[in-house]
């Protein structure tokens, strides 16, 4: 069986569309595409491969994302699609799309300051409260509910909130 180039493009787009329906299990409002961990879809003959990249070294969600991808492809009748983990280039929080940053914010998680360099890691970046927008905020703990988050508090609306750490 030969696949016409047009079919190939369509298949790629379909695989990408299905892959994009998978969301982060810890933050179920953001898709893995907007989180920037869905790297590419490679189709060669009848071999389809989806490449994803880990966020934090110890992120326990990666195993689950891999199995959810496999399940999504099976449900869409696209199996077998191979899901492969690639390390290079390393993911940084700059891979999160504008849509993703908005989704994090609307979910109550302050998105990471752009530019994941060392100044953003430890600089005096102000983190606006995702609830009331106030910049009168302070960090309570550098290590929060998951590996990727820190715990902050807003002095204006008095609410604690998660901050997606720069990485």
């Amino acid at each position: 069986m030969t696949t016409a180039p047009g079919d190939l493009t369509a298949l790629c787009a379909e695989v990408r569309r299905v892959a994009s329906t998978v969301v982060d299990p810890e933050i179920p409002v953001i898709s893995i595409a907007d989180l920037g961990i869905l790297r590419e879809v490679v189709v060669a003959g009848d071999h389809v491969e989806v490449r994803i990249t880990p966020t934090y070294s110890g992120c326990p969600a990666m195993n689950m994302i891999k199995s959810e991808l496999e399940q999504a492809f099976a449900t869409a009748g696209l199996a077998p699609v191979q899901v492969r983990l690639v390390l290079s280039p390393a993911w940084t929080t700059d891979w999160i799309t504008e849509t993703g940053r908005r989704q994090l914010h609307d979910y109550g998680i302050a998105p990471p300051a752009p530019g994941g360099d060392r100044t953003a890691l430890f600089g005096t970046t102000t983190v606006p409260c995702p609830r009331c927008g106030s910049t009168d905020t302070t960090q309570l703990a550098a290590f929060g509910s998951t590996a990727c988050k820190a715990l902050w508090r807003c002095a204006t609306c008095r609410e604690p909130f998660d901050y997606f750490k720069c990485h």
């Binding site: 390390l87 390393a90 993911w91 890691l121 290590f143 990485h167």
Partner: peptide
């Protein structure tokens, strides 16, 4: 690639 990730974690 492993170092690029670990470096930020060890900085924290």
């Amino acid at each position: 690639a492993i170092a690029a990730k670990a470096e930020k974690e060890s900085a924290y």
